[in-house]
Structures are given as structure tokens and as C-alpha cells.
Design a protein around this nucleic acid. Structure first.
Lengths: 134, 134
DNA sequence: TGTTTTCCTACCAACTTGGTAGTAAAATAT
DNA sequence: ATATTTTACTACCAAGTTGGTAGGAAAACA
């Protein structure tokens, strides 16, 4: 039941930007890739899902890059992971309703409780909780 | 962050046996496969990981099959899922310690808390909680 | 007009998932 | 003994996912 690199790297991007929030400048993705020792090209592929959620302000060209739109404390870890990974539900039937064992399934209640537990935990953690000065 | 069919089917096998615990007989895997509408051959492949954990008493030949070794209330959902799926840890570094970003990682504490939350939830649920008469 | 950056699309190797198939070994019934 | 029934074991395989790489277009700015 693993979080993939997509979710983990998304969190790293957001956390890197969070620590530079008060510098109020556009941070190049290449800067993040270098500092975090990750591939620029792979980070580029993770960015769109975050951009779609309106997480940052972007600028192209020289001195361009990314900047957080809101304060770090206003991003929950849940929304960042859901943006990059999709639903974190431990079983598909919680979100999709397509399971044909549904009528005989005795576990669905337990799975829903687990899902709630996970979502509740991650919804109460923010980017600020991950920052250096904490 | 999904539980695979391996873990889900393991739970179904255990729950099927739990509901027949008081019948005190060996239940054929084919009976379970038919009732739960799952492939016998695939269930056969899931069984060894449960057997290794000494979850049941087995018997071969006619009238052979599987029987729970302990009472349903004495199996936690956590141990069943860990037996079939391996560790449920949301990130590898919790169990393996091989991450080379370790010194700069700001998320590990949060991941550990999440892992504890999940484990705690599943360790307090037993097979009995999934049974029909509940 | 050149440079720098984001943005977008195509491709790919390795691994995981979710199975199937066949057979050996053990236990029991006849 | 032997046939039957069931577990136990091993090999194989197709499709999807993961974790990337590569190349270029578009935009912004100097």
C-alpha cells in the first residue's frame, strides 16, 4: 500500500517552494531538481497535476519559475497527495462502485473506516508542518 | 495507495473460514472459491503466505481442506494483510532504511505517523468484526 | 532575435498484478 | 493395492503501472 514517487516528489516540490515562500520570487524547477537531487525531466511530468489544482503562480522565460499561490499552512498534505496520486482509497469500490461482489462483501465498512482514518490524518497536516523551522 | 487483490482475497478466505469456525470441519478451497466467486487457482496461490503464519490446520485428501487454528476474534486484520501483502508502510524508507535522501528528508516523520495511524487502526480490528452476525 | 524557462507529447525498460496450467504428493475410501 | 480427492508446488504469461528519458514548441524577457 505504497505512495508512489509521483506523490512523494510532488510533496518535495511543494515543500521546497514553501521554504522559499517569503523570498517572493519565481523558483526554477531546475533549482528544485538540483537541490533535491531529482531529475528535472521527471519533475516536469509531475508539475501539471499540481498546476491543474491551481497550487501556484507560474512565469515563463528567464527569471521565470514557480511560486506558491497560498501560504504553506493553507495546503493540506491530503490535497497535494490526491492531486498527484489520485484518490488514496485503500480499495477501489470506495470511489468507483463497480465491484460485482458488492452484495456479499463484508469488508466494505471496514475499508471505509480505514479510508476515513487516513484522509482525516492527512487533512489535518499542512505544508507548514513539514517546513524546516518547525 | 491500494490494497491489492492478494490482501483482499486473503481477507475473504479468512472471513469465509471464520463464519464456519463452529462447524468444526475442514473446508475445501474449492468451496470458498465457488461461494465467493473467485478463481480456485488464484486462491491457491494466496494460501501459502497465510499457511506460513500458521493461521490454519490443513488436511489433504478427500474431506480435506482448511480450518482456522484460533478463534476469529484472535486474528487481527493487520496480521492477515501483512501476511498476504507484506508491510503496509506508505513509504519504503520506514522499513528498509535504504533511502539516499534520508539526511535531507523532511517528510519521514509525517510518514511514520501515518504508518502508525494505519497500523493502529488495523491492529484493533479482528476477523470477528467482519463476521455476518455482527 | 537569442536565451531561458515552462509546457507538451511520445517513447521505453523493468516491475507488478492478476491471473492460468500442469503436476506431484498426501490422505482417505473402496 | 488402487482410485479419488484434495492440498502443495512450479512454471508461465498478458496487461498495466512505475519511473523514468528525449525532443521540441511556446512564451516571456533582455
Amino acid at each position: 500500500m505504497r505512495i508512489s514517487t509521483k506523490g512523494r516528489y510532488a510533496l518535495i516540490i511543494m515543500e521546497n517552494l514553501a521554504n522559499k515562500y517569503h523570498e517572493d520570487r519565481f523558483v526554477r524547477l531546475n533549482e528544485i531538481a538540483n537541490e533535491e537531487e531529482l531529475s528535472l525531466k521527471y519533475l516536469e511530468k509531475i508539475i501539471p497535476s499540481l498546476k491543474d489544482k491551481d497550487f501556484f503562480i507560474t512565469s515563463r522565460g528567464s527569471d521565470g519559475g514557480y511560486k506558491l499561490k497560498r501560504e504553506p499552512k493553507d495546503y493540506t498534505i491530503l490535497e497535494i497527495l490526491e492531486a498527484s496520486e489520485g484518490s488514496l482509497a485503500p480499495v477501489e469500490c470506495i470511489t468507483s462502485n463497480t465491484c460485482n461482489r458488492k452484495s456479499m462483501c463484508k469488508s466494505i465498512g471496514m475499508w471505509k473506516e480505514l479510508d476515513d482514518t487516513i484522509n482525516n490524518f492527512l487533512d489535518n497536516k499542512t505544508l507548514e508542518d513539514l517546513m524546516e523551522d518547525k
